[in-house]
């Protein structure tokens, strides 16, 4: 009985590990595929981002003052592109606050919490604004 239970436990563990590995692999593949999406969001390419949401517009100013110089228009430059990254909001916020590698950190005096929220709204709006004008 104990052996049978042990066998069942090992099989269950193997199934869980396989499932976890598969999820991990699919996540990486999804990220790879998404990384191949276009990064272009400039007005001549996709048209102006005309938003009526004041938070998005406020976030645009925050982005311009803090992020643009390394990620111009959300494209790559000194830093990598942002427009093709499907990171969830909480991870993006974490990266802004903590930094990553050569990216410096931006603490609350640099970007207050309400401005950080607005920045996230702006980044998501830009991410979604991705249909080239030539395709319309």
């Amino acid at each position: 009985m104990a052996n049978y239970q042990g066998t069942l436990n090992r099989q269950s563990m193997r199934a869980k590990v396989s499932k976890a590995f598969l999820v991990l692999l699919l996540s990486i593949l999804a990220a790879v595929q998404l990384a191949c999406r276009s990064v272009r969001r400039g007005e001549p390419i996709v048209g102006p981002l005309a938003s009526s949401d004041p938070q998005v517009n406020r976030g645009h100013v925050v982005f311009q003052q803090n992020c643009y110089k390394c990620h111009p228009g959300g494209e790559g430059g000194l830093g990598p592109a942002l427009n093709d990254k499907l990171l969830p909001t909480f991870l993006m916020k974490k990266q802004v606050r903590v930094g990553m590698g050569t990216m410096p950190s931006f603490h609350k005096p640099d970007i207050p919490p309400d401005e950080l929220d607005a920045l996230m709204k702006y980044l998501i709006a830009v991410r979604r604004h991705n249909r080239p004008m030539s395709n319309r």
């Binding site: 976890a20 590995f21 999820v23 991990l24 692999l25 699919l26 996540s27 990486i28 990220a31 790879v32 990384a35 830093g79 990598p80 942002l82 990254k85 990171l87 969830p88 991870l91 990266q95 990553m100 590698g101 050569t102 990216m103």
Partner: peptide, 21 residues
């Protein structure tokens, strides 16, 4: 529950969003 998915996203983020050096 979905920690492998989150880990995958974190690893991908590291691979594609960083590595300047």
């Amino acid at each position: 529950r979905n920690w492998p998915a989150v880990m995958g996203l974190v690893v991908s983020a590291c691979l594609f969003a960083g590595c300047y050096v």
